[in-house]
């Protein structure tokens, strides 16, 4: 590479670097420093607080509750989402006209805006006039009880993530080189063997990526909760980010704002490290 084209390369990444620095790294550093100080509502640091802010956060039962809820959402959502999207991609991975039609249906959720679908789902599950209850002769007071409220959030999340994950997995399936499949055919493998021993292992990197995307979505989940349950009933469906939203934007609680920012960034960095490690080890294996 010539010195000139190298310079140009830096020029091209410059806008991205500036944006990330201004909107991600600088605010993080600011929050990190502020999290050890008392910050008043006008944003002035008035006194050193040491770990007081973190102690106040850990001692807040609603924060602990939100961590538990986020964990619960992750534990349920990620397997459900992974199995469903994998199933979808598996079923239509071979090219045929019928599969193209089904495949297009799978992508439709991408065309919906999240808030639009959330509001429709909210109407479908409305406590008094639920269509779902009428069709299936159920008597569930959706959104008015913790379990069903969490379930409705997970339904929304699966719907929102399905299309993207499906596209990723499908392209991974279709990228598998024909000659590998053909070689296995010559060896006399059956359909199941081919799927579980050849195709599936080959798409694992993409599968790991979709799992981590799902993990990221749950870690940062707030808008679906805002729209579906507003954290209710009785503050039982608040995620960490939703809790952050009400503390920072509704309550102007600077201490919670700074400490949660720091904890979330550090936790995300940890997840990213785990992800890199997994992908690296796979490559060397």
């Amino acid at each position: 590479m010539s010195a000139k084209s190298e310079k140009r390369g830096y020029l091209y990444v410059l806008p991205a670097v500036v944006l990330v620095a201004v909107f991600s790294y600088y605010p993080f550093l600011k929050a990190f420093v502020s999290s050890f100080f008392i910050e008043n509502q006008m944003g002035e640091l008035t006194a050193f607080a040491g770990l007081e802010n973190y102690k106040a956060l850990i001692g807040n039962e609603f924060f602990i509750q939100s961590v538990k809820t986020t964990f619960l959402l992750a534990v349920i959502f990620i397997p459900v989402n992974t199995v469903l999207t994998l199933l979808g991609a598996t079923l239509v991975r071979r090219k045929s006209r019928f599969n193209e039609v089904i495949g297009s249906v799978y992508i439709i959720p991408l065309a919906f805006s999240m808030s639009l679908f959330a509001l429709i789902l909210k109407q479908i599950l409305s406590p008094t006039n639920s269509i779902i209850n009428r069709i299936f002769h159920l008597n569930v007071v959706w959104l008015n009880d913790r379990t069903s409220a969490l379930a409705s959030i997970i339904i929304l999340c699966v719907f929102l993530d399905f299309a993207l994950d499906y596209v990723l997995l499908l392209s991974a399936f279709r990228k598998i080189e024909r000659n590998i499949i053909e070689a296995s055919l010559i060896d006399g493998t059956n359909e199941w063997q081919r799927y579980f021993m050849i195709e599936l292992p080959l798409i694992v990197p993409t599968l790991v990526m979709t799992i981590f995307i799902a993990l990221k979505d749950i870690l940062l989940i707030s808008a679906p909760i805002m729209l579906m349950t507003e954290g209710g009933p009785f503050r039982s469906t608040e995620s960490v980010m939703f809790y952050y939203y009400i503390e920072a934007f509704k309550g102007h609680n600077k201490a919670t704002e700074n400490t949660i920012s720091v904890i979330t960034v550090l936790f995300s960095a940890l997840l990213l490290a785990v992800y890199s490690l997994i992908q690296k080890r796979r490559r060397h294996a």
């Binding site: 209710g232 009785f234 503050r235 039982s236 009400i246 503390e247 309550g251 609680n253």
Partner: peptide, 16 residues
């Protein structure tokens, strides 16, 4: 009072 939003939901859940 501060944290009015949180107090709102706490009253509701406590009464329930």
């Amino acid at each position: 009072i501060p944290s009015a939003y949180q107090v709102y939901y706490s009253f509701q859940s406590t009464i329930a």
